[in-house]
Design a protein around this nucleic acid. Structure first.
Length: 683
DNA sequence: TCGTCCGGCGTTTTT
DNA sequence: CGCCGGACGA
């Protein structure tokens, strides 16, 4: 029996409402995960609802994993078995693996990321008359939007989004058609297709939707404010036979509209699901009240929102600070000094985060932190599977699985260089078109198309054939190592980069790739097939490929990341840097005359990450693209009546310090200066 | 086939 | 300022 007495009244009400539509409006730090994990535990343990009938969907594998672990903590492993915790995409893939043949694809489809997408669209645009006049990015964005509306290439011309007068729309139509055709021919689907095709499956085959809906009689959706229209349609399909839908989210933290998230999903939940119950979680267990007061004040400027007021029992003497800095180097130095002070007072660096609007802002901090020997870690940036060498190896694995995948095949045809260049490729592409066979089949059947290249072609197809078998017989990491060796991949890396540092980094990427295969095998045993491995990597499902269990205990490192990446996390001390006009709100949002409320929400997300201390900074001048540009405080802070909410201090002078502090600071400052001179005196 | 040079451009990104 | 993609020449 699970006791719900540890929940507050609102949380408890949310956990006990099981039937019918339910919206849990969970403010930042209000114990959302706690509430939903207790809700599930309650359903299983107290109400004896079958595990198999419960589905919880989140956006990230990390969130899904955390939920699973916490439920196991409540129920134990045995009782938690049979619950489905998925991401939208992993759920889609799971369904498509079983059903995709109904849509005319084969079961071993490849999954394409946005780089692959872009490559095919570029090709499509090239083949379009006067394709040069069009910006591929705009077309790609249009297609992305169409997919998110559930509009396929065939429906486009009749849709409200198609303007017959607009040449761009004609180009888009052509590219969309070409693109989707190619994908099918390659037996590939892109990230959007995972949802698009699942929804199509549900629409074209309502009996399939019915079957899944009957299986999952209780559905929970996390971060509901971030769902897009396709995800909404997917949810509708899954609830086609019942309406036991519980969604959890916070409209004030909706920051992904640029990716197609539609905030109206959460704003009009009751209209979409009549009879819905709404529970607000407003007590915050994270931040001291002064920080929450500032957060509330900032977000109340937005008009179209569900009214909420976060409150906290935690009092503190700290008032959020707003510091003005001279420029980006100064900003980094002052913060670095503060962190050094914290460190020498015995403070833990894992308690500190530096948050910014864009990744480029991390650079000056990196430099200064390195110089002052402050350990740090940067979250975000390039994804592991997006690194070139990893993509190359993944392409090999993909082709071994799905030789129809022309894109991946073309990627590796001449990697490492084996004298099969664009001329030869052209010939084979022509051949494959003539005979209506895949590129791989053309290579395999006609190795002597150009007698000069015959050996190279045979070598290549030989590798693929051989490794189909190798991967069957040997373990995943063994087979990959052998592949790396056989194709001379390390030697290829060595000669591809001049700097030893680059070579080492890339070699390490390859090693890490092999290691992740080892871990994958260790965790998945018999399920550790090549296909599952490639799929997991693509879906960023690193839960057992990356080292685990350091989530609750942070390393002794300062964490740096974007406001976006910080959603859901918390830190004792938060530095929000570059709180400036044209950064937050971002200049493109201002320029386009767009609604800036999402930028304000981003500011709100940043503020609500802080538990004890919040310091916001802005620079009077910032170096942008090599030019010094004057900057001003963000309107989000400047527009407020700041008295009592936030203390404005000018860090370019010592005016904010006591005399003693200023003296200490100057001493340190001049000492640094002299150190600097010593270094420079070498010249 | 492959390497070099030039010009354009520059947010955020859970999959 | 620095990266990436396309053009062009060896």
């Amino acid at each position: 029996m699970i006791s719900l007495s540890g929940l507050n009244a609102a949380q408890r009400q949310a956990a006990e409402t099981i039937d019918g539509p339910l919206l849990i409006l969970a403010g930042a730090g209000s114990g959302k995960t706690r509430t939903i994990t207790y809700r599930i535990a309650h359903m299983v343990d107290n109400l004896a609802l079958p595990q198999k009938s419960i589905l919880a969907v989140s956006f990230t594998n990390k969130a899904a994993k955390e939920m699973r672990e916490r439920i196991i903590g409540l129920l134990g492993k045995k009782k938690a078995r049979g619950l489905t915790m998925a991401t939208f995409h992993s759920l889609g893939v799971k369904i498509l693996k079983k059903e995709i043949s109904k849509l005319g694809y084969h079961k071993n489809f490849s999954i394409y990321d946005s780089a692959d997408q872009s490559a095919i669209m570029r090709e499509a645009l090239k083949s379009f008359k006067a394709g040069k006049q069009f910006d591929q990015k705009i077309i790609m964005a249009k297609i992305g939007k169409l997919k998110n509306q559930g509009i396929g290439p065939d429906d486009y011309a009749d849709s409200e989004y198609f303007d017959d007068e607009d040449p761009y729309d004609h180009a888009t139509h052509y590219v969309y058609d070409y693109y989707q055709d190619k994908l099918k021919f390659y037996n590939a689907i892109d990230f959007d297709d995972i949802l698009f095709l699942t929804v199509k499956l549900f629409t074209d085959f309502p009996e399939v939707a019915k079957q899944y809906s009957e299986q999952f009689r209780y559905i929970m959706i996390d971060e509901y404010q971030d769902t897009n229209n396709l995800q909404f349609d997917l949810i509708t399909g899954l609830t086609s036979t019942h309406n036991n839908l519980c969604v959890v989210g916070d409209d004030d933290q909706a920051i992904y509209s640029f990716r197609g998230a539609d905030i109206t999903n959460i704003l009009s939940f009751e209209r979409m699901f009549p009879g819905a119950k709404v529970v607000k979680l407003e007590e915050n267990y994270r931040s001291v009240s002064s920080i929450l007061e500032l957060a509330n004040k900032v977000i109340k400027e937005n008009i179209n929102r569900r009214d909420k007021t976060l409150w906290s029992q935690r009092k503190s003497s700290h008032t959020p600070l707003l510091w003005s800095m001279a420029n980006t180097e100064h900003e980094a130095e002052v913060i670095s000094d503060e962190i050094s002070k914290h460190q020498s007072n015995g403070g833990h660096l894992g308690d500190i985060a530096v948050l910014y609007r864009s990744n480029t802002q991390a650079q000056p901090f990196e430099e200064v932190f390195r110089m002052n020997q402050i350990p740090y870690t940067i979250i975000g940036g390039q994804k592991f599977y997006e690194k070139k060498e990893v993509k190359d190896l993944m392409a090999y694995l993909t082709v071994i699985l799905n030789p129809k995948d022309q894109l991946q095949l073309r990627r590796i045809l001449n990697i490492p260089n084996r004298g099969i260049g664009s001329r030869t490729l052209e010939k084979y592409l022509e051949k494959s078109e003539q005979e209506d066979i895949s590129l791989y089949e053309a290579l395999y059947r006609y190795p002597d198309l150009d007698p000069n290249r015959e050996k190279h072609i045979r070598d290549f197809t030989g590798i693929i054939t051989k490794f189909k078998e190798v991967f069957d017989l040997q373990s995943l990491p063994e087979a990959i190592s052998k592949l790396v060796e056989d194709i001379g991949f390390y030697e290829f890396i060595d000669k591809s980069y001049d700097s030893a540092k680059q070579v080492e980094r890339r070699r390490n990427d390859v090693n890490f790739f092999i290691e992740s295969a080892e871990r994958f095998v260790k965790y998945n045993g018999a399920h550790a097939t090549l296909k599952n491995f490639v799929e997991k990597l693509l879906l960023q499902d690193n839960q057992d490929t990356e080292e685990d269990e350091d989530d609750d205990i942070r390393k002794n490192e300062v964490t740096m990341m974007t406001f976006h990446s910080s959603k859901g996390l918390e830190f004792d001390t938060v530095y929000m840097v570059g709180v400036e006009e044209e950064s937050l709100p971002h200049k493109n949002t201002i320029k386009n005359g767009e609604d800036i409320s999402e930028e304000r929400r981003l500011c709100y997300v940043g503020i609500t990450r802080a538990q004890q201390k919040l310091i916001m900074t802005y620079c009077k001048e910032r170096k942008l693209y090599g030019k010094d540009t004057p900057r001003f405080i963000s309107r989000f802070i400047n527009e407020l009546d700041k008295d009592g909410f936030c203390v404005h201090q000018d860090r370019t002078t010592f005016g904010h310090m006591t005399e003693e502090e200023a003296d200490d600071y100057k001493k340190g400052f001049f000492a640094n200066l002299i150190d600097g001179l010593d270094d420079d005196s070498m010249f």
